[in-house]
Simulated assay, not measured.
Amino acid sequence: MQQDKRYSTMTEHELRQEIGILQEQARKAEQMGMVSEFAVLERKVQMAKAYLMNPNEFKPGELYEIEGSPGQYFKIDYLNGVFAWGYRLKGDGHEEALPISLLKK
């Protein structure tokens, strides 16, 4: 059985290949009406994309719009790897972590 590599150990080229494969699988899952499978694959795409980004471009205390959720904003408290920890504005007040690929200025 082949063991998959962690995104953190992949090269940029490998990550881009993985993203392409996952997007194709997600497209097929969506066409077949496999909603849960589609959601899982979309999350994997976002995780892989996060490893292509520079966490230093995201600053604690700043607000970022959440990708795919217009009008929803996220305030970063701290970063841990490619995850931004903080709170959604107008959310329930619980701390959560989002991959930095879901955040945009």
Rank of each mutant, 00 (worst) to 15 (best):
E30T: 00
Y7Q: 03
E24Y: 01
L15I: 11
S69C: 05
Q3P: 03
M32Y: 08
M34Q: 14
K105H: 11
I100C: 09
G68W: 00
R43C: 00
K49P: 00
A39T: 09
R16P: 04
K5Q: 14
A84H: 05
P70H: 09
L89V: 15
R27V: 00
A97K: 12
Q31M: 08
Y64V: 02
F38N: 01
Y7A: 10
Q3G: 07
P99T: 09
M1H: 09
Q2H: 11
Q25N: 14
S8G: 02
A84K: 04
A48K: 09
F74W: 07
Q23H: 04
M32C: 03
G93T: 11
A50H: 03
L79F: 06
E14F: 12
Q2V: 12
E65N: 07
F38D: 00
M32E: 15
S69E: 14
F74I: 06
R43S: 01
S69R: 14
Y7L: 11
K75S: 11
M32V: 03
I21E: 13
L63Q: 14
V82Y: 09
Q23K: 15
I19L: 08
E18N: 13
Q17P: 00
K28C: 01
L15K: 09
I76K: 01
K75G: 04
S8R: 15
R6Y: 10
L41D: 01
Y78I: 04
E24P: 00
K104P: 02
Y78H: 15
Q2A: 13
M32W: 03
L79Q: 07
G91Y: 04
P55R: 04
S36W: 01
R6I: 02
K28D: 05
K28W: 02
R16E: 15
Q17D: 13
L89F: 03
P55C: 08
R6E: 13
T11G: 06
K105N: 07
Y51S: 02
G61I: 03
M34H: 13
R6S: 12
Q72C: 05
N56Y: 05
L102Q: 13
A39V: 06
P60D: 12
D4P: 05
E37N: 06
E57Q: 14
M47G: 07
G33R: 03
E96M: 15
K104I: 09
M53A: 10
Q25P: 01
E30L: 03
K28E: 10
G71N: 06
V40N: 07
K44L: 14
Q17K: 10
E62K: 15
L22G: 00
F83W: 11
H94R: 15
I19G: 03
L79A: 08
K44E: 13
Y51L: 02
A84L: 08
T9G: 01
I19Y: 04
E18P: 02
E12C: 07
N54Q: 13
E42C: 00
T9P: 01
D77A: 13
S101N: 09
K104L: 09
P55I: 06
V40Y: 03
L102D: 03
A84C: 11
K49L: 13
Q23I: 02
G20N: 15
V40I: 10
Y7K: 06
G33Q: 04
G61Q: 03
V40Q: 07
A50K: 02
G86V: 05
I21D: 11
